[in-house]
Structure formats: C-alpha cells, structure tokens
Amino acid sequence: MPIATASQTIGPYWHLIEDPSWADLTRLGAEGERITLSGTVTDGDGAPFSDVCVELWQPDPAADDRFPGFGRSRTDAAGVYRFTTLKPGPVAGRGNAIQAPHLALWVLGRGLMRGLATRVYFAGEPRNETDPVLGLVEDPARRATLVAAAAGPGAWRFDIRLQGAGETVFFEV
C-alpha cells in the first residue's frame, strides 16, 4: 500500500504563493456575523515568530461561492496574524454529539517540519462545557489555550505558543 509523502518545512519564502486578501474570508461578499481573529505566535523563548503561515478552516458557516471557509495569514515582524471571518455556529460532532463553535488552525513556518493543528473556541460559549474535543484535554490550564478571549466588539484574540510555558494544545488527527 502506498505511504503518504513526507512533510517538509514550508520555509521562509512561502510568501511567493501568498495572496494577502485570503486573510479576509468575507472578501467575496459573505453575509453573517463578522469577526476578527488575531494573535501572536511565539517560540520557546517567548519571542515573536515572524513569517509564519497560519491557515484557518471552518466547517460553519458552510463554504460556498461567497464564503471560502478557508483563509491564510502571515505573521508580521511582531509575530501577529489576523483574520476577518464569520462567527461559526455549533456543528455536529462524532456520535451525535454537538461541537461548540470553533475554527481549525494549521500553523506552518521555518523550523516546523510539519504543520501544527489546533482549534480556536470562543470564551463564554456555553457549549464549550460539553464540547467533546475540548473534553479530551483534562488539564484546565491547557484546555484554556484553545479558547480565544474577547478583545472588543467582534474581536477575538488567540495567541499561539509553540513551546514551553502556556504551550498551545496541538492535535494529531
């Protein structure tokens, strides 16, 4: 049976395929509750990590011609990425469970041999208490790394710490 091709780092020059407009998932005219999601990507020294490729995929609202459901943002010199998108609603989980509203992120950069998968949940969402994926993370402090904080009207902040204190929970699917 064939074996999946090995991953290699995206490296420092992936901007050659970057279209900065992709960071705005509402650019095609999607209607709904518009939000921004931004945060800082830091390394094991707490230093900002620039030139990271952060990709966003969300199962809700469903993708269509006016809403790609997918976005890509680079981190700037201060390690900050930023998306504009639509606030997701709850979606079906495994075994008839309901998943709390969330976004999937994939983090790529020089020094990352493979992408790192994580999820963004929204603080204050009652369904977070029963979300089956959040429930996989027993330590409340670690679980909290998956929850974005409100940062003003329609603005959410989600920092990504790759290593060490406050390390973000990453998933293997």
């Binding site: 094991g44 199962p59 979606v91 989980g93 020094g111 790759l162 390390e167 929970v169």
Partner: peptide
C-alpha cells in the same frame, strides 16, 4: 535543523478522531 529547537512543542499532541471539521 536549528530552527526546530525553539519551535517544537514539548507536549505530546492530543489524539483526535476526525469530525466534520
């Protein structure tokens, strides 16, 4: 590959059975 030193997570990834996401 020196670039991996400060960028690799120290915690094991959490195994996740795939959902629609």
């Amino acid at each position: 590959y020196l670039g991996t030193r400060k960028r690799h997570p120290l915690q094991q990834p959490v195994r996740l059975d795939p959902t629609l996401t």
